[in-house]
Amino acid sequence: MTEEIIIAGFGGQGVLSMGKILAYSGIMQDQEVSWLPSYGPEMRGGTANVTVIVSDERISSPTLTAFDTAIILNQQSMDKFEHSVKPGGVLLYDPNGIIHHPKRKDIIIYEVKAAKLAAEMGNTKIFNMVVLGAYMKIKPIVKLENVIKGLKKSLPERYHKLIPLNEDAITMGMNNVTKI
């Protein structure tokens, strides 16, 4: 099994950390992982993206042009990455702020109103975990218990009290993802 993912959105949405949690979860279940962020001027301009690969085998190229799954969180990223999904692949997006919705017929499209759900839960910071939950429902590649283990390992001790909130956000995402 090899899953090649791009997560793209605005800086500050937690795109990079969501990728990091996914990668850490892969390690927790003995898989190979790579995490390659956009860095530099591109990132400083406000958009951020990260390529994450989770695999049972040694990972070849950490940089890719075609993905099994694209998680898209703003219009710029939709414009850039809708066409990078492999035929038959998955596109998951939050319709919040999207003007031009995805049009491709040869991929499977899902939406999760993560920004709205996070606001309803009273904490917009857990937005990315709602998205992660939606992804985990579509592609159960990483197990929830391993995500929690990954969070424990990657977060400093003082933030561990926030783990239950993150778990709730993941569940919220899992229960509110819809196929378009």
Binding site: K20, A23, S34, W35, L36, I59, P62
Partner: peptide, 9 residues
């Protein structure tokens, strides 16, 4: 920059 910036196990 690629090897330096990417994360792996």
């Amino acid at each position: 920059g690629l090897i330096g910036q990417m994360m792996e196990k």
